[in-house]
Amino acid sequence: MGEIINYWTFIYGPLAIFLVGVYGLLTQKNLFKLVISINIMDLGVNLYIIALGYMDNASAPIYTAKLAVTSSRFVDPVPQALVLTSIVISVAVTAFVLALVIKNYEKYNTLDLIKIKGIEND
């Protein structure tokens, strides 16, 4: 039982969040909501990265005076480093894409995808 719960929380959880984002991309017509969907996907991926680095009974990979030496007491530092990079990149992309949404709104006076496509094709 415990194992199954862990699968749910560690793999299906983040993947589900990722796919909520995909669902948003599949159904939403509003540019801003699409950006939000991308952000949700980001969140899912970041959680997934962290989840994969997790280990039972291990602590943050920081050497302190109190802890004993062996490295097996620490969780893997690599996913934590990667997730930082991933977060920063997603922040950058989000900033840019939000600016783009503003410009789109200025140009087409709407955020609706279908309407913009209509104007664009004319």
């Binding site: 862990n6 793999i11 680095g53 997790y54 280990m55 097996s72 893997d76 530092p77 690599v78």
Partner: peptide, 22 residues
């Protein structure tokens, strides 16, 4: 993915770059 991801308790560092970094 699940059968091969060796998460949670099975997740060991013995052959991972992370161990070398630590």
């Amino acid at each position: 993915l699940i059968p091969d991801l060796k998460i949670y308790k099975q997740n060991n560092l013995s052959q991972k770059t992370g161990k070398v970094y630590l």
